[in-house]
Amino acid sequence: MMLQMQGLAGPDRPAATAWPLSRRIGLGLLALLAAFALLGPLLVDADPARQDLSASLAPIGSDFLLGADHYGRSLLARLAHGARLSFGMALLTMLSAAVPGLLLGVLAAWRGGVAERALVALSDIVLALPGLLLVLILLAFAPGHFLPLYLGLSLALWVEFFRVARTTTARLLVEPRIEAARLLGFGTPYILRHQVLPEIAPLLLTLAAFAMGTAILAISTLSAISVGLQPPTPELGSMIVELLPYYAEAPLAVLMPGLLIFLLVLGLQLTARGGTVR
């Protein structure tokens, strides 16, 4: 919804080196976050739903390593479980938006004609429908459940992948070297895989990086208007909303889930664009 056309500037050039510093930093960050999300829930034995009202808003370092939220729940445990859920959900949402978006985009550019026009019309109509409306309506079928939330977000997000994939592919297809490959008798799948995909991949990665951040933020936006996951599910976006009223007393508790989202998007950005910072 929020992130379109990041890479309209055209394909990023291949990097001078495949592994510049920024990409290595990015990958390092992502590895750390993945370890936190995957191993954290196993290593932290505190129950993220266990409340202890006498430890409400306990500070960092006391009985709780990262402090406690207003119900006295361990923030470390909630962050670890929340990271697993949020990152997993964001990845799933991004993939289910990117894969069909990419495939349809390439298909539209490759086939042209009626197929292309129909797909473009469809994407325009989806864009013209408020994304929020789609999510709200899907959510109304099963409030607080995971599936409609993720479906609704994917439905709103696939269009930008489609648009970028289509315009870039269309531009590539008229380039002489692809014409030449076609004349030389290379098959469609070969050309797509070896000549088109490598060119549009960096762009789509950039889009994907922002799309994951957008997905998590969208969930927090939805919880801010009281639609979203059911309590006591730990989820980074809704944790921010839940803790927001306590911003004056426990500012760090509000910022920590935001920090995780920030590191994720930064890591993705650095990895996806590592080669482009010249």
Partner: peptide, 20 residues
């Protein structure tokens, strides 16, 4: 509701909270 959910769980009552 989220706090009541946790307290009910302590006596073995399993409540799912639905905010609608």
């Amino acid at each position: 509701a989220a706090a009541i959910q946790a307290q009910a769980r302590e006596v073995g009552i399993d409540l799912a909270v639905s905010v609608g």
